[in-house]
Design a protein around this nucleic acid. Structure first.
Lengths: 346, 346
DNA sequence: TATTAGCACTCCAAAGAGTCGAGTGCTAAC
DNA sequence: GTTAGCACTCGACTCTTTGGAGTGCTAATA
């Protein structure tokens, strides 16, 4: 059988209607719905075909039809192709520049949640190819050093280093010089064991400190493996959609949404970015591999703040989701995020 | 009428049973329940009295009785008095010392949630009387300084200061000296306008920087007024309790729970600490002033890490809550938190 | 006088019966 | 190929029935 144009129109009509109402769509509704003046009986025949092809399904005999995952997929693919051509008029979602990356991310995810009415999340960017900008060791106490590591993009990491023995100011100065000379300007990925060993040699009795500083650098680029930074907002939005609001489902979703590391893993998987063109990915039902989300769709976009700091922003909602609006919002936010550092030169 | 001993025993039995089952308790249940061998009829008479006195109520005629807020209050007060005398055997809830305060708080709140099966939260400590320990300005770029402020207890704050004009290394050194001389060792509360003006004078053309550093200090002690750090865990636990799990209530609670600033406000109110003895406070129903929580009880404890860093830890659950267990857990965690810095001398 | 047995009464929850209507598939006619 | 028409299906809703848990009251009992 062939998915001819008329079938496509009908399918699209079914999906659109279902997105709005959340109720199974009957043949009569479609027959009244649209330009193609067909009787409900004809529609019924076509619907039977569409069902056979797997694009729609019937919750029970004598109910209307609802889209299957396959149906959604077709619809979404089409939608994204269209959006791709559209010139995006950037709505003014104000991303004020704050010096704290964290605040900005929290703000962005709040905006997304309130614009879309879906549960939203964003991962803090991970660093891919940034250069070290600056290292500062300071003596805080006789046997305690504070290490501050600054990476391009003004990402900071502090570490308190406990020493086995006291250290004098002069040695601290020397270490500072040594570390900055050797490491500054180097992309983090290029720091290797050779360099570390060389520095440790030069540091002499203070080689322990070099090790600790390198650890701090490592931590900077690999933030909290176990507990990766993901910010969320609008979890309660899932209660807007009856199909997710029953106790069982809601509980599972809230739980998943609270478990940042699971979210991070999920969003991490999406980083591959197949569709280079827009960077928007849509995962319908089981496509996410997180089983609590089998009744959900997840839409994500990867952003790149510049300087190789990349993260993912996305929403979770019911399968009958206002995909068009979500894609718009994500594209806009992505565009803005992409230009945060680039344009402002911050 | 008088709340004699027998009435008290019956009331306690009713509450205990209700805490376990969540269903109205009938006279027959109590009659079988306990030592006082009384027939259900007698119990019924007593129940009628208890109802008249306001300790219990009937959801509808011909249903059993459930505790009223007044009843809970009596029960809880009693409980806390008992617990107060008990020598608390500290279960080994491992609070591993991590150098990152944040991680520790997240861990603690997770422990609490999983031990109690209630939604849990903890506020990051606010600083009350800490002394400044260390200030470090570093030149990151020609027109950019990095300020690091360390407060007793190794709390850190970074701030990037954008300059209007370039600055030379020597000036940075001078500023460092000036700031450390003037401010180090001083309790933050004591830094006043006089001192700031004086420093600005001495800094001459770089007075702008002094201002920025002072700002950073201020930020350190007043972390994100608008968006205070509160960590939560176990939000999905509310679904365990049918009386909170209906869509409406759950949605509101999740929403409240996500709104950190509202939580912070609420927990902040509890800081007064009336009951110095244990520091455990229980708020039943409307006692919290947060209207979404009218069907909940909130139990909190204030902790003091030492160094005047105080915060609040607490749980939210249904009124029929296992108060005994919750109080135990809170007391244990409070004790551990109180000794984190003191004992380890960290 | 306090306690208890017994009884009539209340009311909710669950189960069952009936109705409605939206929607279908199929057939025959256009 | 399209459509009108019809019998059929099935969930949603309403109404009723039933059972049981629980009560309050009264009269008998210790």
């Amino acid at each position: 059988m062939d998915l001819d144009e008329r079938k496509q129109i009908i399918l699209k009509a079914i999906i659109k209607t279902y997105l709005e109402t959340g109720e199974p769509v009957g043949s009569r509704t479609i027959s009244k719905y649209t330009d193609l003046n067909l009787s409900s009986a004809t529609i019924r025949n076509e619907m039977a075909d569409l069902e056979e092809m797997g694009y729609i399904l019937q919750p029970h005999t004598s109910a209307g039809r609802i889209p299957s995952d396959k149906g959604y997929r077709l619809y979404v693919d089409e939608l994204i192709r269209e959006k791709d051509q559209e010139v995006l008029d950037i709505k003014e979602m104000v991303i004020t520049k704050t010096d704290r990356l964290e605040k900005m991310l929290k703000q962005v995810v709040k905006v997304l949640a309130s614009n879309t009415n879906y549960a939203s999340m964003i991962t803090a960017p991970t660093i891919h190819r940034n250069a070290l900008k600056f290292i500062q060791l300071s003596k805080v106490r006789e046997d305690q050093l504070l290490a501050v590591v600054v990476v391009e993009g003004n990402l900071l990491k502090n570490k308190i280093i406990e020493l086995n023995e006291p250290i004098d100011e002069e040695s601290v100065l020397k270490l500072n010089l040594l570390l900055n000379n050797e490491l500054c300007g180097k992309p983090i990925g290029e720091i290797n064991l050779d360099m570390i060993t060389k520095m440790k040699l030069q540091a002499g009795m203070h080689s322990q400190i070099v090790g600790s500083v390198v650890d701090a650098v490592a931590e900077t680029i690999k933030p909290d493996e176990e507990d990766r930074a993901v910010y969320t907002s609008g979890a309660n939005n899932i209660f807007r959609y009856p199909e997710l609001a029953d106790t069982q489902t809601a509980s599972e979703l809230i739980s998943t949404f609270e478990n940042k590391s699971e979210l991070a893993d999920m969003l991490g998987e999406f980083q591959d970015d197949d569709e280079e063109s827009t960077g928007i990915q849509v995962y319908i039902g089981d496509e996410t591999s997180v089983k609590t989300m089998k009744d959900c769709s997840v839409v994500t976009a990867n952003y790149d703040l510049g300087n190789g700091m990349r993260g993912t922003i996305g929403i979770i909602g019911p399968k009958r989701m206002d995909y068009a609006n979500v894609v718009d919002n994500l594209k806009t936010l992505k565009t803005q995020l992409d230009s945060v550092f680039n344009e402002k030169g911050k």
